[in-house]
Design a protein around this nucleic acid. Structure first.
Lengths: 159, 159
DNA sequence: GACTCTTTACTCGGATAGACGGTGTCCGAGTTTTGGTGG
DNA sequence: CCACCAAAACTCGGACACCGTCTATCCGAGTAAAGAGTC
């Protein structure tokens, strides 16, 4: 089981956009330069965040991206779900109904099997933990030098 | 993010092996017939469980697989880790060090970034939930007719 | 009848091919700013 | 000086290769039970 790189990109970009709030909007290319990421592909992931209402995109010259709402109201689950998708990692194919279980009378498998229940419970715990942390929490726990560092580096890119 | 089908297969096969404890060992082919699964590929997944010490394989004629220890001592995390691997879903590529962060003095990024910490915390909650449930719990919560059903179907396969 | 050897049936481990999703790039369409042009 | 128009820069959305992983199969090697042959 593996999570795509887009999640890491998205979270760090959201952090950068939060630090650079007053310089917004930030174009994709500058954001990509900050982390040495492929610009076009990064844009695809940022568009996922726009679709989810986490970022807002400004078209035209001097356009770019900005946070669509306050960092306190952006949870990590929001970002993960926007980029990685909303369906569960474990997908039940109901193999208990195939083969031997095929001839059983209807109603035998009315209740979901324990395997699915257990897996769902685990994923729920995962989601709950992600939903409990916001972008603002990440900003608070980051190094105090992070905001200034980001602004300084960004200023050098535009200059 | 997606989990392979092998996890579902492995868990249901472990359940079946628990019900059929007195008929052990059960060959791969019979196990595959029970759920209409591709026999050779299923064997690969069962071998993963053997490597992890969850199942024991008996070679030779009338060989097959059996549980290597009591269902009370097999957690869902054991099965998932054996089949899906033990490394985390979120892999940190330290993109904060690339690009703008490349020229920073060593020691700037001594502490792991908050993104990794948050992700690890969520995955830990997931693992804890999986480790809290054993195969015996699944057996207890299954339909009371399940053991008999499984034994009856298996008897018909051998006959 | 007991022992040994061969056959058989199964597992084990690796090698291999195809399918699928994630990664990455490119291009055309739409939009807004910038800059020029004519009245 | 003002209004209008064209060019530039950017985002948006879709289409397209590439690559790694998952799915699935096959084959040779090893092992244990079953059966045949011999003493």
């Amino acid at each position: 089981m593996r999570m795509g790189e887009g999640v890491e990109w998205g979270l760090h970009c959201c952090l950068a956009l939060a630090w650079l709030e007053d310089e917004a909007p930030i174009p994709t290319g500058k954001l990509a330069e900050l982390f040495e990421l492929p610009p076009v592909y990064l844009k695809k992931r940022l568009q996922d965040l726009v679709r989810a209402g986490i970022l807002a995109s400004v078209p035209g010259v001097k356009g770019g991206f900005r946070l669509a709402r306050a960092p306190e109201r952006i949870t990590l689950l929001d970002v993960v779900a926007a980029i990685e998708g909303r369906d569960e990692a474990f997908r039940c194919n109901e193999i208990r109904r195939r083969g031997a279980g095929a001839e059983e009378p209807a109603g035998t498998f009315a209740k979901p099997c324990g395997v699915v229940i257990a897996m769902r419970r685990a994923e729920l715990a995962w989601r709950r933990e992600l939903a409990a942390q916001t972008l603002a929490d990440l900003m608070r726990e980051a190094a105090p030098s992070a905001p200034g560092r980001t602004r300084r580096h960004y200023a050098r890119l535009t200059g």
